[in-house]
């Protein structure tokens, strides 16, 4: 079945099936935490998640029909937003904690050992609190994550991408389908029409907060790498360099 003929319900079901598995750091972050140890653990997790994220993107209906240039561009510009939204979702039932993985749960004070990271932790915790207040549903969460992937940074495209009208058109249609799916997921909740619109607006406005934190996170990670506090893997380095 082609993605264009999927109902919103079927599309959400496909996106749900694309969800990556739960990840584990698989090693104890030794206490007391040091800057180098914590950064190493966080980048190790990010690297593991990136591999799963690429498989996830390929399973979003229609994504692999975009040109490879578009696929790469979308992933490079949104990867940290996607990681951060995933982190918020895992942390939603744990006020005051950031659940980086099942075996790496940190509170804001534990961020103190890494220069400049507490301000990022605070923004992540604040956005998580907002999602908790909104009682974000799993169906809404998967739609928002797919929207981040499809919506990323279209304005800064290269001439080569601007000329690829076919992929641009496909991307727009895909984004419209996922938007419809999100609207459908909200409409099932028995809210008045006015409250449905407000909820849609609240959820979408949070994406701009996530974009803002991810920009801070990219800058932070670049600084940490440039100051040789942490080494990053080939894939992470590539995403960091091409994404910023």
């Amino acid at each position: 079945v082609h993605h264009s003929s999927l109902t919103p319900e079927q599309l959400i079901s496909c996106i749900m099936h694309a969800e990556p598995p739960e990840i584990y750091l698989m090693e104890d972050l030794k206490r007391p935490f040091t800057e180098a140890r914590m950064m190493m653990s966080l980048t190790k997790l990010a690297n593991k998640e990136l591999f799963f994220m690429i498989s996830w993107a390929k399973k979003i209906p229609g994504f692999v029909e975009l040109s490879l240039t578009y696929q790469m561009h979308q992933l490079e510009s949104c990867w940290l937003d996607v990681l951060m939204l995933g982190l918020m979702w895992r942390s939603i039932d744990h006020p005051g904690k950031l659940i980086f993985s099942a075996d790496l749960k940190l509170n804001r004070e534990e961020g103190n050992c890494v220069k400049g990271i507490v301000i990022i932790f605070d923004k992540l915790l604040a956005a998580t609190t907002r999602f908790r207040e909104l009682n974000l549903q799993r169906e809404e969460y998967v739609c928002l994550k797919a929207m981040i992937l499809l919506n990323s940074n279209i304005c800064s495209t290269s001439p080569e991408m601007a000329e690829d009208l076919e992929s641009r058109g496909k991307l727009q249609l895909l984004l419209d389908s996922v938007t419809d799916a999100l609207v459908w997921a909200i409409s099932k909740q028995g809210l008045s029409f006015q409250l449905q619109s407000a909820r849609l607006a609240h959820l979408l406005m949070l994406l701009s907060d996530i974009r803002h934190v991810s920009g801070k996170g990219m800058k932070h990670l670049s600084d940490m790498k440039n100051n040789n506090i942490v080494q990053v893997s080939d894939l992470l380095l590539e995403m960091l360099t091409n994404g910023s």
């Binding site: 390929k58 490879l68 696929q71 790469m72 992933l75 080939d234 894939l235 590539e238 091409n242």
Partner: peptide, 13 residues
């Protein structure tokens, strides 16, 4: 782009 391109073009599991 080598690593990302490689991962995008390899067949999914």
């Amino acid at each position: 782009h080598t690593k990302l391109l490689q991962l995008l073009t390899t067949k999914s599991e």
